[in-house]
């Protein structure tokens, strides 16, 4: 980014307001700054940047693994050291695409099953959350009526909903999805409502002068203006739903990373649990980054006025 700013490719913007003084405006174009030596000369610099960003986490990781190895090295240690995790659980590390009977599946399929549940529950939460958030942001009455209820409900821990949803749905699968839904929806509602309430009066005036109807206002003004807020809510929501899925799956069973962990515990396969935790962490990290990236792509330009 910064490189692009150093070489002003087009001096055109500056010349417009200065149009009557044409000779002066042209001076700006006398700045062709050696564009040829670009990529090759920057290679060492790129390598250094890469090293600067990759080395510290790698060193930290190595140190942590070493400490762990030392702490758990005695044969009586309750938890296995990293080296034993590697040997004991080599089978599930090496073959993530393994397909067996029932819940005996490779890590990839376990994670995929969990991701599917999260995808359904989270999508529903995103749609319903944005819709309710718009309602709360637009209407004083909805705000006064619903906000206190939402503020109470959002403090209920995700798993507290599970027995209730099991009773209501009579089945594990929809119950897990419902738990994801109810966990992820609150930050989406609250942030969307805040975004809609904070739409600048100027944009509303533009919409009124143009006589935009409700749909046009929603699509052309409200959603783009509130998008940064909405994506903040969506990002918090996806993190929460990934937190909830593991706990929910432990209780409902079936294929899924949560039940895999629970099953490993029951079989005293502590190494498998550790491998699963690493998977859960990495997937959660990528989910968060995915939503952040989507937000950046979609809200491009909204932050600057």
């Amino acid at each position: 980014m910064s490189v692009a700013q150093i070489h002003p490719a087009k001096p055109a913007p500056a010349s417009v307001d200065a149009r009557p003084m044409t000779p002066q405006a042209r001076i700006l174009s006398f700045m062709p700054r050696k564009p040829a030596e670009g990529s090759l000369a920057r290679l060492p610099q790129l390598l250094r940047q890469l090293g600067e960003s990759l080395l510290p986490p790698l060193i930290t990781l190595a140190v942590l693994l070493a400490v762990w190895e030392v702490l758990c090295s005695s044969p009586t240690a309750p938890l296995p050291p990293p080296s034993r995790v590697l040997t004991e659980s080599w089978q599930i590390i090496a073959d993530p695409f393994y397909r067996g009977q029932g819940t005996d599946q490779g890590m990839f399929w376990q994670i995929l099953a969990s991701l599917q549940r999260v995808a359904i529950g989270y999508s529903l939460a995103a749609i319903a959350g944005i819709a309710l958030g718009v309602l709360l942001g637009q209407s004083q009455w909805a705000m006064r009526g619903l906000d206190p209820i939402f503020q109470v409900l959002r403090t209920v821990p995700p798993l507290a909903w599970l027995p209730l949803s099991l009773a209501a749905f009579q089945d594990g699968a929809p119950s897990a999805i419902f738990v994801i839904f109810i966990t992820a929806i609150w930050p989406v509602i609250i942030n969307t409502a805040a975004g809609v309430r904070n739409i600048p009066q100027d944009y509303q005036n533009v919409a009124r002068v143009l006589r935009l109807n409700g749909f046009e206002y929603f699509g052309r003004i409200m959603l783009p203006a509130a998008a940064p807020y909405i994506f903040t809510g969506l990002r918090i929501g996806v993190g929460l739903s990934w937190l909830a899925i593991v706990a929910a799956e432990m209780l409902i069973g079936g294929v899924g990373i949560g039940f895999f962990i629970w099953d490993a515990w029951n079989s005293s396969l502590i190494s498998d649990i550790i491998v699963a935790l690493i998977y859960v962490g990495v997937v959660g990290f990528f989910l968060d980054r995915l939503i952040a990236l989507a937000g950046r792509l979609i809200t491009r330009g909204t932050a600057t006025a």
């Binding site: 100027d202 944009y203 005036n205 533009v206 783009p224 203006a225 491009r300 909204t302 932050a303 600057t304």
Partner: peptide, 10 residues
């Protein structure tokens, strides 16, 4: 024509 232009930034 609004004082602060009020263009939609997106």
């Amino acid at each position: 024509v609004f004082q602060n232009h009020s263009l939609l930034p997106w």
